[in-house]
Write a protein that binds this DNA or RNA. Structure first.
Ligand SMILES: [Mn+2]
Ligand SMILES: [Mn+2]
Ligand SMILES: [Zn+2]
Ligand SMILES: [Zn+2]
Lengths: 144, 144
DNA sequence: AAACAAATTTGTAATCATTATAAATTAATA
DNA sequence: TATTAATTTATAATGATTACAAATTTGTTT
């Protein structure tokens, strides 16, 4: 899906974030790529379009978006952070075989967590790990 | 709580893991310290007792325990891994103010995740973040 | 027990994601 | 236009984790 850069710039302005070329393009990129990209992937994909782009800018911008509540951080990988622009609460499943990260609907807000009476809950993350259907089928084939 | 080293050694033997001094002490440490310690903390706490201990050994041993299903990995911090010897499914709450990580009971296995039909789920992690009751009270005081 | 082989531990170096820093560039203001 | 503030950029530093090979310990065979 192609996202309007003007719309995206306006969205940033409304949040009092100055809409620089880099910020607008990174935000638009996040809206077009819902695959939970890493900083590395964002940088590699945008670098051809914005030759001057620095990886530091991608880091800075993501941290800025994070503080502004525009993106959420996924700590599902051991070594690197992924980002998600879908802010509505949902779960993430990581396939240990192909590495893909799937979204799934889950009513985590309704969860009874009686042990947390008196706690202020700001973020809820649900991470599942295992094998996706496609990889499972391939494994069955291999076993034959 | 003081954990028997003989019992711990036997437990390792039963899993075909040779019970070296380092492994036994690290496993006993995990049973005595349910605070989700990092490699750094485990090393710092055990180093006085085992002067020859290397941090590499702590890393190797935790990875060994992980593969053997003796401990679980917590990815609740952005930069470093924590370990938990309590294998029964439960949630983790991290206080953004004091950094403490609390356990809470949650029936995650019963969760309806219809989007995951056909997926093989091996691990379920639930991470909540916010402010613990103690820190919340302190903040109220500060505001006065 | 001595000799040999395998497993484990250890110290050091390498890797790699992220952050710190300061100069360079761009945008806003006077 | 001159001045100032914000942003971007390149480079260096940080820090957790892993790779590696030598040293040590443990187990097995003569
Ligand atoms: Mn998502
Ligand atoms: Mn726990
Ligand atoms: Zn897969
Ligand atoms: Zn707290």
């Amino acid at each position: 899906m192609k996202i309007s850069l003007e719309e995206t710039a306006k969205e940033l302005s409304e949040r009092n974030i100055r809409p620089s070329i880099q910020r607008v393009r990174i935000l638009a990129y996040m809206k077009e790529n819902l695959c939970h990209p890493t900083v590395e992937k964002i940088y590699n994909d945008l670098h051809p379009e914005i030759p001057s782009l620095s990886k530091t800018t991608v880091y800075n911008t993501l941290n800025l978006f994070l503080a502004a509540g525009l993106v959420r951080m996924l700590n599902i990988e051991e070594n690197e952070i992924r980002y998600d622009i879908v802010m509505k609460t949902h779960g993430h499943f990581k396939c240990e075989s192909c590495g893909e990260i799937f979204n799934f609907r889950i009513n985590i807000d309704d969860f009874p967590a009686d042990d947390l009476n008196g706690f202020t809950i700001k973020d809820r993350d649900v991470y599942f790990k295992g094998v996706c259907p496609k990889c499972r089928k391939e494994k069955v084939k291999e076993a034959e």
